[in-house]
Simulated assay, not measured.
Amino acid sequence: MTPRDAADDNPSQGSRWSDLDRPPLNAAALRRALVRKGALWSEVDVVQRTGSTNADLVARADAGRAGEGSVLVAEEQTAGRGRLDRQWTAPARSGLFFSVLLRPGEVPVARWGWLPLLTGVAVATGLARAAGVDTSLKWPNDLLVTVGGEERKAGGILAERAGEGVVIGVGINVTLRADELPVPQAGSLALAGAVSTDRDPLLRAVLRSLEEWYGRWLAAGGDPLASGLQETYAAGCATLGRTVRAQLPGERSVVGEAVAVDGDGRLVIATGAGVQEPVGAGDIVHLRPA
C-alpha cells in the first residue's frame, strides 16, 4: 500500500464506504486501469483535499517533480478556479476535480491553444459514453447539460502554461443536488439524469477519451482539421448558430451570430454591420436558444 492509498483503509481518515452516496475514489484501481506501458498516463495521484489541483501540478512541473501524463485528482478543492479567475467550489466527493500535465513538444506552440478545446471534446465524449448524458460545449470550454429543459453548466476547463508544457484542469459536477448548486445556472450529471454517477468509471472514461484525442492531435502535428478536432468541436458546440455577446478585454463587447470556430480555435462572430470578427479570448453570453 502506498501512502496515498492509506485513506482507503484507515478508519481515522474515513472508510471508503463511509458515505454511500459519495464514496471516495479508488486510487489504486485507477492507477491499475490507466498507468500501463505505452499509455499517456504515467502517474495518477489522488489527494483528499487541496486548494487547486492546477496550482499544485504547475508547481510540481516547475520543480521537475512531474512528467508528461501526470494526473492529480482531488476529492475536494478549496480554491479551485475557472476562467477569468472565477471561484469553483463544491462539496467533497461531489464531482471530478483533476489536472493533467501535457508536453506536446513536437507541435508548434501556435497550435497549443487547441488543447482546452480538445479537452472539452474529450470530456464530453467520455461522459456521454459513461454517464449517458447528452452534453454540449459552450465556447471555449464550458460543459453544458440539460436540466428540466434548461441549459446548465456542469463543468469547466482551465489551461495554464507550465514551463515547456501545459497543465489542464477539469472540474465536473457529478452528484451535486439542487440545494447545493452555487448559482441557479449550474447543473450536474445527476440532475441531468445520468445513468451512472460512479466517479471511478467516469474518470477512467474521460481520461481514456483525452488520451485518444490527444494522440490523434499529436499524430496530425496539432492540425485541428487533419485530426478531426475542429469538425468534432464545431459539431458539439452549443454556441454556434446562436446570437451571442462577447465581453472582450478593455470593456469592449461584440454582439452577433456565432458562425464558426476558425483554424486557430477562435470563435467567429458575424455582426449586424456585416463584419466577421474572430474572438480569441473573452466571456461569451448566449442571448437566444439555438
Rank of each mutant, 00 (worst) to 15 (best):
P184L: 02
G169F: 05
A192E: 15
G187V: 12
K153F: 08
I172C: 03
G163K: 05
S188I: 15
V167S: 01
V174R: 06
L181A: 01
E164H: 06
V174Y: 06
V174Q: 01
V167F: 09
A190E: 06
P184C: 01
G193R: 08
E180C: 11
R161M: 00
L158S: 07
Q185H: 04
Q185I: 01
G163A: 00
R152Y: 14
R177L: 10
S188M: 14
L176D: 07
A162F: 12
E151H: 04
A192Y: 10
A194S: 04
V183S: 11
G169E: 04
A194M: 08
E160N: 03
G165L: 04
A178Q: 12
G169S: 05
V170R: 14
E160R: 10
A194E: 10
V170E: 04
G149S: 07
I157S: 00
E150K: 01
V167D: 01
L189I: 14
A190H: 09
G156V: 08
L181K: 07
Q185F: 08
L158N: 09
V170S: 09
D179C: 04
P184E: 05
I168A: 03
L176R: 11
A162M: 05
T175K: 11
E151N: 04
K153D: 02
D179Y: 14
L158G: 07
G187N: 08
L181M: 09
G193K: 08
I172K: 14
A192R: 15
T175H: 15
G187I: 15
V166M: 15
D179K: 12
A194N: 07
V195T: 13
A162T: 06
V183Q: 15
V183N: 05
T175R: 09
A162G: 06
R152H: 12
A178M: 14
E164F: 11
A194T: 08
S188E: 10
V195C: 02
G155S: 01
Q185V: 04
A194Q: 05
G171N: 02
L181H: 12
E151D: 09
A154S: 01
S188T: 15
A194D: 05
G187D: 12
V174P: 05
A186L: 10
G149T: 09
R177Y: 14
E180P: 11
A154Y: 04
G193D: 10
E160M: 02
V167Y: 09
V195R: 14
N173R: 07
E164N: 10
R152A: 13
E150T: 01
G193S: 03
I172E: 06
G171E: 02
L158R: 09
V170N: 09
Q185Y: 12
G171W: 15
A159G: 01
R161P: 07
G155A: 00
L191N: 05
G169H: 08
G148F: 13
G156C: 06
